[in-house]
Every structure is written in structure tokens, then in C-alpha cells.
Design a protein around this nucleic acid. Structure first.
Lengths: 137, 137
DNA sequence: TTGCAAATGCAAATCACTTGCAATAAAACA
DNA sequence: TGTTTTATTGCAAGTGATTTGCATTTGCAA
């Protein structure tokens, strides 16, 4: 339950935070702060900077994950959901999920070799989707 | 030779462009636009927006590669150099190169499965370097 | 050498995101 | 339950990286 997730992490359970967790829970894709803001606004008053602050806080507590896309924007998703990566079309910006994540194994090796305490990763393939490629070639 | 690289791609060979290619050639790491600008300025007058425009143009022609780091900044490197990926410390922002790139193989499979014309990828591990981890735990 | 498209400089604009501070709401405590 | 304490929020202004419009300059083909 959302209340508990928050309290267990020493965070106050506020309407805004619960709403943002709700939104991320029903999202099937990583979302930008802006997208989350738009959906949240349909339910209640909520400031843009509150959305950003909430997302930072949740990411800091590892309740959600933050990734930077090739477009320079941050994408957020619940950590509990099996996370996935994307193919991003450089032309139409369509995003297609790639199932699975091949980095868990790599991560162990690299952590051992370097002593880094690895907490996450950013990955995406960039290219042209079949439609855009056809259009341009 | 730099002149040819440019001309072969239908670009005029200007002092600024050659200088930026020089800088990237002698860099052993991906660089930000700002870092490139600072070095370039030591050699000749050159506007910030020219640096950005040059980098975009070169990336568009695939002469250089652009990757977005977890800090949201763009990092540029020559495509001809074997490219590499990074471990980035979320605390002190130290970057450590990981040799090799495990994505070439994956790329083929995914391209076949999805029809995407894949032109590049962004990847980095994020975590705490041994020093910062020790400090915080 | 001239003509013209491409490249550059400059200043202002944009975009995603952050911050300072006062007002408010949640949880702790009496 | 009422009150205090402290975290959270709203608002407006601020940042930092990058982009753009437009006038000027430069490379290079004719």
C-alpha cells in the first residue's frame, strides 16, 4: 500500500505523493515529469515544482527509478516493476520497449572489478523506426 | 585528414571545424560542448553557438558520436575511435571507462526483430565510487 | 573574381529543471 | 483533542545547457 511505502522510507504520506505513485503504477512506460504533471493535474491541484521534488525524493529513496533519455529528459518508473529499456526513433521519437535487461550479470562483474557500488544504469538504442527509415531513404 | 572527412560529407572545411576535430582527436574521453569550447578558445576566437552547431552537424553526419550522460549533458567523441562506456559516480561525478562495448551483437538481434535501423546507443552505469561509498556508509 | 550557399557571431529565447522563502499540512507530543 | 514541530508545498524567480533568428562573413564552384 502506498502509505506504507512512503512511511517505511521516512516520508510523509501526502496526497500529491500518493497520486504520483498511483500514476506511475498504472503507467506501462517510463514517464517524464511533464507527463506525470499533466495527468496529476486532472485529479487535483499540484505544483510543477512539487512534482519534480516528489520525483527526486522518491528516486533518492529508490522507490522509483530515474533514467535520462537520449532526448535529455528524465524518465521515471516504479522500481518494483521489472524495468525495461527502449528503442527510440530519432525522427518521430516513438519508443518501443525491449524486454528484459541484460545488465544484471555485467553489473556484478564490473562491480567486482572496480569496487563501484552500482545502483542503476541508463541504456537505450537510438535509430530510425521502420516507418521513418522508409520515408528518408 | 580532417579536410577530407569534412568534404566527403559535403561540409565546408572551416578553421573552427578542423579545430574541433583536432580537439576530439586528442581527447581520450568523451567531452562536453563546454569543455571543447574552452580548449578551442585557447587556439582561436570561436563562438559558443558555433561549437554547438558544429557538434550537431558532425554528429548528424556520424563523424562524431553524441551521448547523453546521466547528468543530462551531452558528451561527444570521434566515431572512428573505438567507443566506450562509463561508470559514473552519482556523488563525485568521477567517470571511469569500461572497456569494450557489449551491444554490437545485441543490436543485430534487435534490429532483426523490430525492423529498427539502429544508429547508436546510450549506456552508462550509475553508482558510487569506492571512495564516496566509504564516506557515506 | 565574383556570386552564392553555407557557416558564423551575437543576443535573445527556450527548455527542463531547481531554489529561496513564506504558507500549509502531516505527524509527534502534551 | 489541541498544539507544537517539522516536512512538504506553492509561487515566482533563477540556472544551466542548448537552440534560434538574423545580419554578416567565409569557403569554394563557376
Amino acid at each position: 500500500m502506498k502509505e506504507n511505502v512512503l512511511k517505511n522510507n521516512g516520508l510523509k504520506s501526502t496526497e500529491g505523493r500518493k497520486l504520483i505513485l498511483d500514476i506511475l503504477e498504472s503507467a506501462c512506460e517510463p514517464m517524464t515529469a511533464d507527463e506525470i504533471f499533466v495527468l496529476a493535474r486532472q485529479k487535483r491541484e499540484l505544483n510543477f515544482s512539487t512534482v519534480y521534488r516528489t520525483l527526486s525524493t522518491l528516486a533518492e529513496k529508490s522507490i522509483i527509478m530515474k533514467n535520462i533519455g537520449g532526448d535529455g529528459k528524465s524518465y521515471y518508473q516504479l522500481s518494483s516493476e521489472g524495468h525495461c529499456h527502449y528503442l527510440v526513433c530519432s525522427e518521430c521519437h516513438r519508443r518501443i520497449a525491449i524486454d528484459g535487461c541484460p545488465f544484471e550479470e555485467m553489473r556484478e562483474n564490473i562491480a567486482n572489478e572496480t569496487g563501484f557500488h552500482i545502483t542503476g544504469h541508463n541504456f537505450e538504442f537510438v535509430g530510425e523506426c521502420p516507418e521513418c527509415f522508409k520515408k528518408n531513404n
